[in-house]
Amino acid sequence: MVTASGSAAAAASGSPSDTAAAAPAPVGESSRPRSLAELAGSVPDPELPVITLAELGVLRRVTEPEPGHVLVELTPTYTGCPAVEAMAADIERVLRTEAGAEKVEVHTVLSPPWSSDDISEEGRRKLAEYGIAPPRPGARASAPVQVGLSPTRHATEPTREAEPVRCPHCGAAETELLSRFSSTACKALRRCTACREPFDHFKEV
C-alpha cells in the first residue's frame, strides 16, 4: 500500500480535531468553518492519495437542499473505476464527522464526461512530485493521443509521439512506453531512457 503523507493523511484520518488544522489558515486565526464543498473536495483520492478529489476534478456539485442533508455529485475518471465507491464512502464519512451531516447522498454523474484536463495545476504539480507524469494538456480538444511503437520486423523506424511525456524523476523527454495500461486504468507504464527509471504516466483522456 502507498502511504499518504502530510495533509492528505490528516484529511483521510477523519478525526475532526486533527483535520481542522489541515486547512491552510494563517497561524493564530481561529479555524474558520470549512464549507461542505471544501470538506468533500479535501478527501484524498483513494488510489492516488497525494491529490484531493477537488484537484482531480471529479467533484461536480455539493448542495444542501435542507439542513443536515447533503447531496454530492461525483463523476468517475474512467467508466469502470472501482475507486468511485471508496470516494463516495470517504466523502460521506468526512461530511458526517466534520460537518455533522445527518444524511449524505453521493450520486455518480457521467455527463459531461471527465477529462484529464480537469486536473488542476496544483494537482499536476503534486502528481509529478509523487513520481507520476501528469497528463499532457489539451486532451479534450484533440483526438486521442497515439502512442509510439518500437520497430517491428519490416518497420525499422520507431513511430514518434507528437509531444513527449517527460520523466518525473530527471525531467528528460526521452521516455518510452512499456504498457498502455498500468496499476490503474487511468495510468500507463513508461520508462525513462535517460535515467532508466520506470514511472507511471496519467493518460490523457
Binding site: Y78, T79, L110, S111, P112, P113, W114, S115, A139, A143, P144, Q146, V147, L149, T152, A155, R180, F181, A185, K203, V205
Partner: peptide, 22 residues
C-alpha cells in the same frame, strides 16, 4: 452520455489492439 464518456477509453483499447496486431 455513456458513449460520450467511454469513447476515449475505447480509443485506448483500439490502439492497444492495433499495435499488437502489427
Amino acid at each position: 452520455p455513456l458513449a460520450a464518456k467511454a469513447v476515449r477509453e475505447t480509443a485506448y483499447h483500439r490502439d492497444h489492439a492495433e499495435q499488437w496486431t502489427v
